[in-house]
């Protein structure tokens, strides 16, 4: 029997040294606060090694979506290493390239110039969450029908 999907864990890289890390941070907050506020929780990536049993346990029991700002894919790798394979692993450069949106060039002080990038990533994360929830519900219905 599958575990009902109460929450999806969002694991952002939030990389401090890259503009994509700031995009990641702002987009994930938008999903958590506005777009999918009831269905998502943030998982603090460094807590995986800083003794965050709660984070590791949550990520092991619930579906996780990782959001990475660069090809090093810290969020996806760390989640898999410490908890379990994420159900979706998103990469910000890919998302922006697919939509023809340039990567922001500054680390902070985002404004109108960077809004398209943040919104595009937030929408993609929200779509991924919807997909995971729909898939889980379909599985639940299947089990219920047997």
């Amino acid at each position: 029997m599958g575990t009902p999907v109460a929450k999806i864990g969002l694991v952002p890289c939030s990389g401090e040294a890259l503009p994509a890390g700031t995009v990641c941070r702002l987009a994930c907050r938008r999903v958590l606060d506005t777009l999918m506020s009831g269905q998502t929780v943030a998982i603090c990536l460094p807590l995986f090694i800083a003794g965050g049993e709660e984070e590791r346990g949550f990520a092991a029991r619930h579906p996780t979506i990782t959001v990475d700002g660069c090809e090093k894919r810290c969020a996806a790798k760390a989640t898999e290493l410490f908890s379990g394979k994420p159900v979706r692993a998103l990469l910000i450069p890919d998302i922006l390239a697919q939509r023809g949106i340039p990567m922001p060039t500054r680390l902070r002080g985002f404004g109108a110039e960077e809004e398209a990038a943040v919104q595009a990533v937030a929408e993609t994360i929200a779509q991924a969450v919807e997909g995971v929830v729909a898939q889980a519900q379909a599985q639940e219905n299947q089990h219920g029908a047997v």
Binding site: A17, P46, I49, K72, C74
Partner: peptide
């Protein structure tokens, strides 16, 4: 200078 903290998590 700074670095992304998550890089330490994956032992970059």
């Amino acid at each position: 200078t700074t670095a992304c903290l998550p890089l330490l998590v994956i032992n970059d």
